[in-house]
Simulated scan of single mutants.
Amino acid sequence: MHELSIATAIVEQAGEIARADGAGDVSLVTVRVGELAGVVPDALHFAFEVARDGTPLAAAELVVEQVTARAWCGACAREFAVGMPPFFWCPDCDRPSRDLRSGRELEITGVEAVPAPR
């Protein structure tokens, strides 16, 4: 389950972001996960609960925003969803696309933290 290593990295990076901002405990972490990133959101939630234990994120909530995989067809000049399993052929002109526009994301987009005590 590689989601545990991903969750551990999220906990570490979110903690660093909070410390750099002078904040205390983290209450919420938002991540964007692409449909083709190879991450199972339910497994990531479970792994996050394990990885956050004993850290400044111990009570933090994880919000996973899923990103649909989309490709661009140059011939039609349009974007289309590739689906799962991915199918990179344009549904309009039946030509293959090599231009993946979204779907591989795995990024922290937000960290909310409680202000540090003074």
Rank of each mutant, 00 (worst) to 15 (best):
G103P: 12
A71M: 02
L36Y: 14
Q13T: 02
P85I: 12
D53V: 08
D53Q: 13
A51P: 01
E35G: 03
F80Y: 08
W72Y: 15
H45V: 03
T30V: 08
T8M: 14
I17W: 04
V63N: 10
E61Q: 15
A116E: 03
P117R: 11
V64F: 04
R52F: 02
R52W: 09
A75S: 15
G83I: 06
A81V: 09
G54A: 11
A116D: 05
W72T: 13
V11C: 07
T30R: 12
R118W: 01
I17D: 06
H2G: 11
L106V: 03
V11G: 02
A47N: 09
A71I: 05
R98E: 14
P41T: 07
M84D: 05
V114A: 15
V39G: 06
E3K: 02
D92L: 13
V67I: 15
V11T: 06
L62K: 06
G103K: 14
A58M: 08
H45L: 03
I10P: 05
I6K: 01
R101W: 05
P56I: 03
L100T: 07
T68A: 13
G38D: 11
H2R: 12
A47G: 06
A113P: 03
E61I: 11
V11I: 06
A18R: 01
A43I: 03
L4S: 09
T30G: 01
S5L: 05
R101T: 07
V82Q: 14
R32A: 09
E79C: 12
D92W: 15
V40G: 11
H45A: 10
V11W: 00
A59I: 06
F46E: 07
P86C: 09
L62V: 02
P41M: 08
T68G: 01
E49P: 01
A37V: 09
S5T: 11
A47K: 13
F48H: 10
C90P: 07
A7M: 05
V82T: 15
E35M: 07
I108L: 13
D25I: 04
L100C: 07
V67H: 12
P115I: 10
A60E: 08
R52H: 11
D99P: 04
P117L: 11
E12I: 01
V114P: 02
T55W: 07
L36G: 12
E112A: 05
L28A: 08
G15R: 02
A59D: 15
S5A: 14
R95N: 15
R32H: 10
I10H: 02
L57G: 00
V39S: 12
A37M: 03
L100W: 10
L62T: 05
G38Q: 13
E12T: 01
P41D: 04
L106K: 07
F46H: 13
L36I: 09
R32N: 10
V40M: 14
P85L: 14
T55L: 06
L57A: 07
L100E: 09
V39Y: 14
A75Q: 15
A7L: 02
R19D: 12
E65I: 08
G83Y: 01
F80W: 03
G24A: 11
P96K: 13
F46R: 05
C90W: 12
V33Y: 09
